[in-house]
Amino acid sequence: MKLQRYVAVTGAGLIAVATLAACGSNNNTTTASSSSAPASAGASSSASSAISCGSGTLTAAGSSAQKNAIDKFTKDYQTACSGATVNYNPSGSGAGVTSFEQKQVDFAGSDFPLSGADVAKANARCTGGEAVDLPMVPGAIAIMYNVTNVTTPLNLSAANLAKIFNGKITTWDDPAITKDNPGVTLPMTKITTFHRSDKSGTSFNFSNYLNQTDAADFPAKANKVWPGTGGQGENGSSGVAQAVKTTAGGIGYAELSYASSNNLQTAKVGNAQGQFVTASTDNASAFIAKAKVNQNGNDIQLAFNYAYSDPSAYPAVLVTYEIACDKGNDATQLPLIKGFLSYAASTTAQAELPAAGYVSLPSNIQSLVATAVNALS
């Protein structure tokens, strides 16, 4: 596997720590390791499993990668809180951030922290306060494929993925793929790549992974708008999964739960140790647990290093963030915003994520998020 120079980047792949400072007026950034084990139902954490019920209707939009997790959180919260309704539109990270900036939603889900012009726009909607990034739902980005008569999970190195998604490898029987899959008979079938057509944090994270691991074959920098060459765009993770499912020779990327729900095969992805690793919650957790925490006030962002060499670590990951106002929330909505997000960060909710195809937040990050949510006003 070809490895370029690796740097620690934010959990969403953002490459400028300056954007972190821009999210808050407090410029004292704290960095801490997040090597603690993922939260479990019995873990000791400041993220209480008790549900604080708000009433009314909570409206949110954004990341489609976290949709299945938010659906589960919503079901649990509404069951416990009969006076609460939570509406989440999986419109994509970019659209969700825009909706938040325009005060159309109470919070946004995004697969990357705020950056660039979005920082000022999001801060402007928070009267007397600022927008904060709250990591909530980590997960693996699965490489889904549809190759007829191939039942063994394929090994795909970062270099080969970079070439496939940049149009340099065009058939499944290419020697570079064959070399990594001894004993597997691969067809001459044309490779059809599918990517997100909408602004997507999943695209941002996956393109960042490809660029950071093999910039020679995937020179385009990470972008919310898919930066690779060729391929077909589909709306949302569900659109990508469905396109792969119905296209012989198709390949695409989406959060692991979409691959599972569509019964799609997923590739073993090469990591920095040179091992081909299955996309699973445990293997993604092995990578995410080594993230570093960059905290600025109640703004919390995670940093990964793709050169991390744990042989079991699955390196194609993302962390979805909930973006909310630290101050300036509507007084009538505040109990519902805090109640729902507090539940999402609780030990109970986080312990349910692996069954849904996600990864629980490490317990120390979970506690930080719970504290930040509690401070919303």
Rank of each mutant, 00 (worst) to 15 (best):
T185W: 03
Q295A: 15
A140N: 04
V147S: 07
N149E: 01
S99R: 10
Y358F: 15
V240D: 00
T348I: 00
L161R: 06
A84C: 06
K75G: 10
A248I: 12
N146T: 11
L368Y: 12
G357T: 06
V9Q: 08
L353W: 12
G230K: 13
A142N: 07
D76R: 13
A80K: 14
N146K: 11
K199H: 10
A21K: 12
N28G: 09
A243E: 06
P187V: 11
A50E: 13
S33D: 14
S45L: 01
T348E: 15
M144K: 01
S197A: 13
K75W: 00
A12K: 00
T85P: 06
I323F: 08
V293C: 01
M144E: 14
A351E: 05
A80Y: 06
A117V: 15
I365N: 08
S363Q: 13
N294G: 12
D299F: 04
S99P: 04
L161Y: 03
G270D: 04
L336A: 04
P311T: 12
H195Y: 04
C81E: 09
A80N: 11
V7G: 05
Q66E: 14
T193I: 03
N208Q: 11
F100R: 04
K224N: 10
Q273T: 10
I15S: 13
Q102T: 14
G109L: 05
P90K: 01
G233H: 05
A241C: 06
S342L: 06
A39P: 04
V269T: 11
D133H: 06
A284S: 13
T57M: 06
S93D: 00
A370Y: 12
A303T: 12
K327V: 03
T193Q: 02
Y343S: 08
P354C: 05
Q275P: 00
A65M: 03
C53W: 07
S49Q: 13
M136N: 10
S91T: 13
A142P: 10
S207P: 12
L154T: 09
T246F: 05
D217S: 15
A21E: 11
V369G: 10
D133R: 00
T127N: 11
L161W: 02
S93G: 08
A349W: 04
G129S: 10
N211P: 07
A159C: 05
V240W: 00
